[in-house]
Computed example of a mutant assay.
Amino acid sequence: MQELIFEDHYKKLGLEMFSDENLETINGNKFKYDIKILFVTQGYELSVDFNHYKISTPSLFFLTSQHLKIEKGKETSTLLYYNRDFYCIQIHDKEVACDGLLFHNVFEIPFVELTETETSVIRGLFQNIKDELQWKDSSAEEMIRTYVKQMIIRATRNWKKQHLNNDAVKIPGSELDIFRDFSRYLEIHFKEKHNVADYAELLHIFPKTLTHKFKNLNLDSPNQFIINRILLEAKRLLFYTDKHVKEIAYDLGYEDPAYFNRLFTNKTGSTPSNFKKNYSSGKKYNI
């Protein structure tokens, strides 16, 4: 396995090439706290949280705190990982920063499918980053950041085409900021803010206005998105940690564990304890 890394004070970015021969490194905890851009080719199968993906088209996955497990794959693929100090400071444009459409969105779609042309371009950008990491020139940091931003911009354009301009969801450009900001605030505050009114206040609009915006676009209600995010975190804690249900309830901002237990059971059809014992697989997607 080949590893290339840039580190300077608090800033870090690395590149790893992998195949079925070294999946255990990618699947471990080494990159748990990094922002990740994962490029996989056809033939790969992987799980992100509780969803399973079978790849038939080269794709990019954009991940932060999700649990990633690559189950199989042949052709060499690439993992780019970095921290917020390297790329995500406030001066970056919010659409292409780490809290934009790709990394945290209310639709929970963390991937972009690539055309043959886009695949070639993305491969070229990864190669440019690899070259800079090998050369270790004094200007390498800025060059690498430029390539990362190009990758994110291209992927964001494709993500919008694939997921916001179809028969199921059509979001006008003027409305994108609301959904992007709602996603960002939800990711930051879901453990302590459980009501639509909390997020409407952060967005400087009325709760009814926020709810109507979602309804007019045939989306689930903001309240449902809030609940979904809480339940996702609950499932992560149940499945990947040894925490007790009561402790998880407190972690997620519920002072009454019995209420949390009822909410989880009502929304998932399983008690938290049964989920922890009996969970087998989530949704399956072919992409």
Rank of each mutant, 00 (worst) to 15 (best):
M1E: 09
Q2T: 15
F6Y: 15
H9M: 13
S19I: 02
D20W: 00
F31Q: 07
L38E: 09
F39S: 11
V40G: 02
Y44D: 05
E45Q: 14
S47G: 11
F50K: 04
I55E: 01
S59W: 01
L60E: 02
F61I: 02
Q66I: 06
Q66E: 15
K69Y: 10
T76W: 04
T78V: 14
L79R: 08
L79D: 08
L80P: 01
N83I: 08
D85C: 08
Y87F: 14
Y87Q: 07
C88N: 14
V96A: 02
D99N: 14
G100N: 08
L101C: 06
E108F: 10
I109Q: 11
I109R: 13
F111H: 12
T119E: 10
R123K: 14
Q127Y: 12
S138I: 13
E141T: 04
Y147E: 15
V148C: 13
Q150C: 12
M151R: 03
I153P: 00
H163R: 12
N165M: 10
P172Q: 08
P172T: 03
E175A: 12
D177W: 00
I178E: 03
F182Q: 06
F182D: 08
Y185A: 04
I188W: 07
H189N: 08
K193L: 12
L202N: 03
K215S: 11
N216H: 12
S221Q: 11
F225M: 08
N228D: 15
A234L: 07
L237I: 05
F239Y: 12
T241K: 06
K243D: 05
H244Y: 06
V245R: 00
V245Q: 01
I248N: 00
I248Y: 04
I248F: 07
Y250W: 08
Y250G: 02
E255I: 01
P257V: 03
Y259L: 14
N266W: 05
P272Y: 09
S280K: 14
K283T: 09
Y285A: 10
